[in-house]
Write a protein that binds this DNA or RNA. Structure first.
Lengths: 189, 189
DNA sequence: AACGATACGGAACGACGTTCCGGTTGTCGA
DNA sequence: TCGACAACCGGAACGTCGTTCCGTATCGTT
């Protein structure tokens, strides 16, 4: 991967960028489940164009948040190197992931796999982040700071689930609950 | 509440029961988000009839699971009386709640509030169960077994969220993760 | 300038939740 | 028993959504 194969037409490249920008704006206001037509209108293109560039809605979401997911992934090793203990690094990294999810309307809700069609998004995000989480988790387990019988995949899904619906309910503080879950990771006495 | 006010027509009562039975069957196979038309067909009625008896889909879901929610609510005080410690009672009760959610396809996913229109279901379930949970939580807090800075509402929502998508993913064990969360409730050392 | 490949726009399709209304059927008083 | 009226029913119809399809416009090249 690297070179964009044969070189596409100028209008195609222009429209792809317009769509990404429009989608990002619409997502902020109306959540990741905003109607496709709204995104197309905002970008000034037809609905057909959106599907030519992003075969499924999940592909569009992936593209919009690609950079942020990448940044989160890269923060993992950095935190491990700069934190006092592996457990502290894990806790901070998960905080960062939670911040990402909570600030994107409805993104967490779409991370769950049961809605067919979002498998691609599910896989894309998790494929990138689970190994990072696994490294932090393993380091903490090796240091005896957490129990060692939990998969990173399971932890990531749990954190994602805990973030669902956290945007519009002042009585529900996802950050705190994730903190509780992470606290529950410590080895039983 | 108690007496069904003026006494409805016989066919109305018959259809309501047929609808409840049909919905329960369809929910098992296709989840609580099964198409309304499927339920109407299975019950042998038109789609209009379903909305006359249950103004919104949430009302139908509430009616279908009313008995099980009630049973779960009643188990709370019983567990508190029969368990060794309040914390054990809380843990068992939450296990029971998790069993309920996990065995109903997609029910947990619909407990989150962000989908407008499911507010009624959200409120109905939580209004009944949050006080029960609060009593267990308070008892455990009073015994010094758990930290005391968490609302029952928040805990219930967290447990509900953790159960989302637990049916169709063998790599995700909601019961265990809820267990971890409950473990995280213990006071910090 | 002219041509072929490429990409565009938006009408069209099917599925869904929900509403509406003409026809039917229970119920109750006479 | 019977008629009339309110209650109730079925399913067609509407609006919204994601997605597909195809006639047309545009780009890049010769």
């Amino acid at each position: 991967m690297g070179g964009q194969s044969p070189r596409r037409r100028a209008d195609a490249r222009r429209n792809e960028k317009a769509l990404l920008d429009a989608a990002a704006e619409v997502f902020v206001g109306a959540g990741v489940n905003a109607p496709v037509r709204d995104i197309a209108t905002r970008a000034g293109v037809g609905t057909g164009t959106i599907y030519r560039h992003f075969p499924t809605r999940a592909d569009l979401i992936i593209a919009v948040y690609r950079h942020q997911v990448e940044a989160c992934a890269e923060a993992g090793p950095a935190l491990l190197a700069s934190s006092d203990t592996p457990y502290a690094a894990l806790a901070h990294w998960i905080d960062r992931f939670v911040d990402f999810l909570v600030t994107k309307h409805g993104l967490a809700a779409v991370l769950r796999s049961d809605d067919a069609g979002f498998d691609a998004l599910h896989a894309s995000f998790l494929d990138r982040l689970v190994p990072v989480c696994a490294r932090l988790l393993d380091a903490a387990a090796a240091a005896g700071e957490v129990r060692s019988d939990l998969e990173a995949y399971e932890l990531m899904r749990a954190v994602g689930n805990l973030c669902i619906g956290a945007e519009d309910d002042p009585r529900y503080d996802a950050r705190r609950l994730v903190g509780l879950l992470v606290a529950g990771l410590r080895p039983s006495p």
